[in-house]
Design a protein around this nucleic acid. Structure first.
Lengths: 337, 337
DNA sequence: TTGAAAGCGGTACCAG
DNA sequence: CTGGTACCGCTTTCAA
């Protein structure tokens, strides 16, 4: 019942260990009958190659690192799920690494991780992928990496993304279409590129609709429930409060909803609230949130796919845009007359 | 800028590689001055030992596996966070593994994981830790493991847990204390031991209060939003609906809230709703949920700690109970008269 | 199409 | 207290 090694398999199949290695790595030049004999031995011995030995001897480790820095559990979950799914397909091992609370020495840290684990490459999610020092360091050591929703397109990497600006326009247009003019916006975390893009999209639409910009109706948030809650309380305390609020993610929108409920304001009759991301939370709050579906899981899967392809072929892929879509639910309605 | 090896460090410090190894592993019998020389070399070369080489050569790999099978993102997040925190402390690497959709061959699968990764031990969260075949297999291969909230106490393992039955009694008593008698319960997923314990606790209190059992008011749920929603719709359609609902976790309670809102029933004035777990969701729904705080993160941290200790000393620890506590918020109120 | 032998970067046993 | 050396289980180069 001990772990079996490549030697055991070789012996059982009456071949050399090199041949076993060939079969397992799908290398050419193995007679079909030999291949089958080896596979049978692998099966019967329940053989699983040692990752350590592989990565030590070879140039690949079949390990991919996922670096993140995001406080939202739901976001994280989707990220992981998408990346793991793709990894499993090619029997890669995913190791996840929380980069919160290390900004300065993140490059050094990531390199250390590479040294320790021999990871073949890295998947960088926003906003980790927007650290120039990190990117430089990785490039210098020629560590393959891909990005999810990066800021400016990284020089040396593939990435997946969604069009945040267009999405913001769509949801703002939805609000405008309902007759709202006094629309407040709760901006996302300044470290996230998506936050600035979404704000731009909002402004695009407002301008196109001929609405005068009003800084009183723009509040800084941080992509968390609390900041959405606080911002909304302030907005509602205004002499003339907004008739609609666009929160740049669902957590903040949930906070907005809470503030509205507490102030006894009916959503959507007296106030419309829109979110962003279509995370789990948007389906469980009341009323259910109108939001934009951000395909995080798909984005993670695609980015991981890009990385794995690159590891195999050495070539990078084109940036890949993943479609978003507007999801209209119950938190938005016609502007009060 | 290449990765540096133990040889580089040895050379730089003018000692043998064995001595470097000693220093890095905190082995005794190294002169202080030598130790410092080595550490200086490690620092300046930015040396990070190769995990692969270590696990291949030695008997330890400094890798711990976390096996889970739980659909809730928030639960997962807490689990991971707690385990990772403890791992980081002793520079262990955590690899996480989703066991959903593999029940039958889970034992074989876990063993494969051990073979591949050389993991030193496993942290098993409920309900994975209640698979007898898995536990047997691990024991037979003498793979160290610990459990989080297991069913019957596992024969050969340490574990952390909370007293679900007592917690259920507390929250039921809270409801009873508010004057409720017609209390419905939405039971958790049958695969989870916690679900049966919580139901037992509920029954304990109801019996102690002299309330006749009423199977009409007991609904089977599955620890997800949807099942809580559906169950509540059925409950509200009853000729005489309950005045309070105890949902055995927060997701189901959120579903209950949604159903109540849709039916235009005021919570908590017309209906009280209580949850369980005190996850993120309980703070963002409206009204905020009265619930029981389940210290998942702490439980994960403690279990991981037990495992690491065992790996070091070889000895198991006593099971460790983590305190829960009742969290009264806004979703429960006096029974309507 | 197959095999022999030399490492990969550490640990562990045993000398000195 | 310190160093030499035999592995750990695989991949890779080079012959056969």
């Amino acid at each position: 019942m001990q772990r079996s090694t490549i030697d055991d398999v070789a012996q059982a199949a009456a071949v050399s260990i090199k041949t076993v290695s060939r079969v397992l790595n799908h290398e050419p030049n193995v007679r079909e009958s030999t291949r089958q004999r080896v596979m049978a031995a692998v099966e019967s011995l329940n053989y699983h190659p040692s990752q350590s030995a592989r990565s030590l001897a070879g140039s690949r480790s079949y390990v991919i690192g996922l670096l993140y820095n995001n406080p939202s559990a739901n976001y994280m979950f989707d990220l992981q799920t998408g990346a793991m799914e793709r990894c499993r397909q090619d029997r890669f091992q995913l190791i996840i690494h929380d980069c919160t609370r290390r900004r300065q020495d993140i490059a050094k840290h990531a390199l250390g991780l590479i040294d320790q684990t021999h990871a073949d490459g890295l998947v960088l999610s926003a906003p980790v992928c927007d650290e120039p020092l990190l990117l430089d360091a990785l490039h210098q050591r020629s560590v393959p990496y891909v990005c999810i929703a990066p800021n400016q397109s990284p020089h040396h990497a593939s990435y997946s993304f969604m069009d945040d600006r267009a999405a913001a326009r769509e949801i703002t247009d939805h609000l405008l279409g309902l007759g709202h003019r006094r629309i407040a916006v709760i901006v996302g975390h300044p470290d996230h590129y998506s936050a600035v893009q979404r704000l731009l999209g909002f402004k695009d639409s407002m301008k196109a609709a001929g609405v005068e910009p009003n800084m009183q109706l723009q509040k800084q948030g941080f992509y968390d429930f609390e900041s959405g809650y606080t911002a909304t309380r302030e907005l509602l305390a205004l002499a003339t409060p907004p008739s609609a609020i666009l929160a740049c993610n669902d957590d903040m929108a949930a906070g907005a909803l809470m503030a509205a409920h507490e102030a006894n304001i009916n959503v959507p009759n007296d106030l419309s609230v829109a979110g962003f991301d279509d995370t789990y939370i948007s389906k469980v709050v009341w009323p259910r949130l109108t939001t934009v579906h951000q395909p995080i899981q798909e984005m993670a899967k695609v980015a991981t796919d890009q990385l794995i392809r690159q590891l195999k072929s050495g070539a990078q892929s084109e940036p890949k845009r993943i479609d978003h879509c507007l999801v209209v639910r119950d938190s938005t309605g016609p502007a009060p007359t």
